[in-house]
Amino acid sequence: MSQISSLKFWMANLVKLEFAALDLSGDNYLSWVLDAKIHLRANGLGQTIVDENDASPEENAKAMIFLRRHIYEALKNEYVVVDEPLALWKALGERYDHRRMVTLPKARYEWTHLRFRDFKSVSEYNSAMHRITSSMRLCGENISEEDMLEKTLSTFHASNVLLQQQYRHSGFKKYSELVSCLLLAEQNNELLLKNHQSRPTGSSPLPEINAASQEVNATSSRGSIHKRGRGGKRGRWQGSRKDRGARSEGLGPRMGPSTNGKNASRNKGKAQMSHVPRNVESPCHRCGAKGHWPQMAHQKYRVS
């Protein structure tokens, strides 16, 4: 039960941490030392971890609480009898300061084999550059801006010799200026490649969407008209009426006279209606206007 309570207390305490607590293995000791110094100075307690300081008992107590809160629980139990921040600071340094000697050779190895041409993008190379140089600086190794510029320019791909010479003649003084220029060039190259792949060289552009839609609309409208005039029932009825009208006016049938009695009676009625004289004086009994067919013809032959 006590272990569960201590675990809950430790988990609740993790939420209040300003930075990662010091691990028992000491793998994060170098970054922990830097974070602890910054936060102690921000809280006005930076002098508590300095030799021959004049910090008050209250300041030492606050610094001790802060340090113990940012170390692992098992590590805290090992230094439970230490009640001075300076003593705890030195004890942790003696225990984990060898991490500098372990980290520095690895960082030097990575720096030696760091090459710009081995990375797919400028962002990946820039991230690796800052990670390696930060590790070396934490271990006391000084890496200047000139070193970072030379490392980048001297590891270009062999096909980019002219580009590398242009960057050298640009006279960059800071590594960040060179990286900004490389990032801009990378984005422009990606845009140029996308434009080239969208339409190969020598090919004609696609028609505009407005012209294409107009052509489709015109084609569909012609098809609709053709369908109504020839394929639809209404078109066939109108066409047959036109043909019958043409035959009644004496233009002659295409396939000879029809032998159907029904059609013959219709044609006969059409012919009689065409010979009925117009009466311009008598008004129409249906609409009252003059110039229509006579009254009897209008009743007998209805024109639709």
Rank of each mutant, 00 (worst) to 15 (best):
S6F: 05
Y29T: 03
L30Q: 00
S31C: 09
S31Q: 10
V33H: 00
L34P: 03
H39R: 14
L40F: 06
N43R: 13
G44S: 02
N53A: 07
D54G: 05
S56Q: 05
E59S: 06
N60V: 02
N60F: 01
N60T: 06
I71C: 00
I71Y: 00
V81G: 02
P85C: 06
P85V: 05
A87I: 15
W89C: 00
A91E: 03
E94I: 09
E110V: 15
D118R: 10
Y125L: 05
S127D: 14
R137L: 04
R137H: 05
C139H: 00
E146L: 07
F156Q: 00
F156T: 00
H157N: 02
S159F: 04
V161C: 12
Q166H: 09
Y167I: 12
F172M: 07
S176E: 10
Q187S: 11
N188D: 06
N188I: 01
T201Q: 12
P205S: 12
S213D: 10
S220D: 09
G223N: 07
K233Y: 15
R234C: 07
R236P: 15
G239H: 13
G239F: 07
E249T: 08
G250V: 03
L251V: 08
R254K: 09
S258M: 01
N260E: 14
N267G: 14
P277M: 04
V280W: 15
C284F: 10
W293L: 13
Q299I: 09
